[in-house]
């Protein structure tokens, strides 16, 4: 079966921030480095999932490893951008706490052979809240143009990415066996949103402003 163009495009979307960092020398210590680690993890997960799909093997179980790890990396990166010490500490503690909560919810409510209905939405909603908080907290004290700030684009991209993912798991698990056509459409919509999110994150990596 030929893969839909949006699926192909989304598969390479994780490379956007990495490519942007390589071209614009955006790799620095701190939050950008963690966001690039997050992108690299997504890329590795995608490559492995494509490989397993080609072998006609179930690749959904990889989500249960990649999702909590990527949520932790995203929270850790966002913690670097906090100006308030308490907010920084809260997000740093939220990273391992989210992984722990993910494990509990996955064991209690999800099955490794199909899409997550509880653990993945929870982790994505936590990241969405953290990204939205970062946007509000930083913009209240920012003195430069927001559109030239790395934290603005990365937080906005993460918000879109995690908001899109938070409904994907439940919808996918409900449609996977009942209506494959709608299942593919759900993925196409999600891929389009994730593509835009990755472009936003890559834009953040190219920003000249130091964090």
């Amino acid at each position: 079966m030929k893969a839909p163009p949006l699926l192909v495009a989304n598969s390479v979307a994780a490379t956007f921030p990495l490519a942007a960092a390589a071209i614009f020398q955006g790799l620095r210590r701190g939050p950008r480095a963690w966001i690039l680690a997050w992108s690299a993890l997504l890329l590795a997960e995608t490559v492995l999932q494509v490989h397993l799909a080609r072998l006609n093997e179930n690749n959904i179980w990889l989500n249960y490893i990649g999702d909590p790890a990527s949520a932790a990396l995203a929270l850790w990166a966002l913690a670097w951008w906090q100006t308030d010490a308490l907010a920084k500490l809260t997000l740093r503690l939220a990273a391992p706490a989210t992984v722990a909560a993910y494990a509990v919810l996955a064991v209690a409510f999800d099955r490794a052979s199909t899409f997550s209905r509880a653990a993945e939405p929870m982790a994505n909603l936590v990241c969405l809240a953290a990204a939205a908080f970062t946007l509000v907290a930083r913009s209240r004290v920012a003195s430069g143009d927001l559109l030239r700030q790395d934290w603005f684009w990365v937080s906005a991209g993460l918000a879109l990415y995690t908001a899109a993912l938070s409904t994907l798991g439940p919808a996918s698990s409900l449609l996977l066996h009942g209506n494959p056509d709608l299942f593919v459409r759900v993925y196409e919509v999600n891929n389009a949103l994730q593509l835009v999110a990755m472009v936003m994150i890559a834009r953040g990596v190219t920003c000249p402003a130091a964090s």
């Binding site: 879109l160 899109a164 919808a171 409900l174 009942g178 209506n179 709608l182 459409r185 759900v186 949103l193």
Partner: peptide, 17 residues
């Protein structure tokens, strides 16, 4: 039911954007 799920998902996606 599946159509409802799809509609809800699409509405959520559009709302998010």
């Amino acid at each position: 039911r599946e159509l409802t799920v799809w509609t809800l998902f699409l509405a959520a996606a559009v709302s998010v954007v």
